[in-house]
């Protein structure tokens, strides 16, 4: 993705004498425009990235007040051979898969719904963005209140009036009987609530960019609406959908901790312990195993880069078609 955009927007080299003078000032402008950004990025972005890579090979603890000691691949071994970690990756995988899939389907449906404007649609479209404007910690906390079987609204809304025979979402129980996985679904529901409008908005803007003539041509060919959807709408929106999915996947891996901590704290019995929560527990909360947490984070980074590359490659392929 980066290399394609690098080549297709290059300015042809200047030729005339007047332009030569300008070319010099162009270089000044490049430097003036790019270096401030690069300098602060190198200073404040690259340092943490490399320093935590270094720390991942040490036994460093941020609160120990002693210099890091090199331990080689010890931390990585611990992460790779720990059941807990794989469990966390499995849970995260399930969480990402279901929430992103649901967000895509529902987001697409919502985008098709708001595609045609009606009076006040601008305001409604803006209002449904409110969930993503809220702080995830508070969102988690509030949904905990909403999910409570006794004084929460959720069960009453979906028709369970008697708390004793209702789902206890965050405890993974139904009518007192264990129902493993329910808590993860509760988290997925909140994630979907928070981010479906965002994905709908992305797809919506993709839909509006589809040129009318494509559909007109399809009408002339008497194509069915399913055919139009599959052959015109979907391919045209696909790049944006992929970007949306990419953003959500990265965030689910790296940022989901505040939402989950607020709602379940990783419980019940670790059923919602996604990697972001696990890393947070290692890096803070009385443990401060900075080295081990960094190693874990780097494994997440590798996965995220792999997934990103997969997405970006597909995106580029689609562009070429």
């Amino acid at each position: 993705m980066t290399s394609t955009s690098a080549t297709d927007t290059a300015v042809p080299p200047p030729t005339t004498g007047v332009q030569k003078h300008r070319a010099l000032s162009d270089r000044a402008i490049i430097n003036l425009f790019i270096w401030p950004t690069l300098i602060i990025l190198i200073a404040f972005n690259v340092f943490p990235l490399f320093y935590s890579l270094f720390l991942s090979f040490t036994d460093y603890s941020a609160i120990a007040g002693r210099p890091p000691v090199w331990v080689g691949f010890d931390n990585f071994n611990r992460v790779l051979f720990s059941e807990d970690m794989w469990r966390a990756f499995t849970i995260t995988g399930r969480y990402v898969l279901f929430s992103v899939a649901l967000e895509l389907v529902l987001g697409f449906a919502l985008a098709l719904l708001i595609r045609e404007q009606f009076r006040g649609s601008g305001i409604v479209t803006t209002l449904i963005l409110i969930p993503m404007m809220l702080s995830p910690v508070v969102v988690g906390l509030f949904w905990k209140l909403i999910y409570t079987p006794t004084f929460g609204y959720f069960n009453y809304l979906i028709g369970f009036r008697n708390p004793t025979v209702a789902p206890d979402w965050l405890a993974s129980r139904f009518a007192g009987q264990p129902m493993p996985g329910l808590a993860l679904w509760a988290v997925i529901i909140v994630d979907v609530w928070m981010w479906t409008p965002f994905i709908a908005l992305l797809i919506y803007s993709g839909l509006r960019a589809i040129p009318d003539y494509l559909y007109e041509a399809a009408v002339i060919d008497r194509a069915s609406s399913w055919f139009q959807f599959r052959r015109i709408t979907l391919p045209q929106v696909m790049p944006l959908m992929l970007i949306a999915v990419l953003f959500r996947t990265i965030e689910a891996f790296t940022k989901s901790f505040d939402l989950v901590m607020g709602m379940t704290g990783g419980g019940p019995g670790g059923q919602t312990e996604v990697v972001a929560v696990k890393i947070y527990q290692q890096a803070f909360l009385g443990q401060f195993q900075t080295g081990r947490a960094s190693a874990f984070a780097y494994m997440v980074l590798i996965i995220v880069i792999a997934i990103s590359n997969l997405y970006i490659r597909n995106l580029n392929k689609m562009r070429e078609d």
Binding site: P48, V275, Y280, A283, A297, V300
Partner: peptide, 13 residues
Amino acid sequence: SGRMLPAVVVTIP
């Protein structure tokens, strides 16, 4: 690339 590492870990450096 700066966005790809979990923020919790970057905070310590």
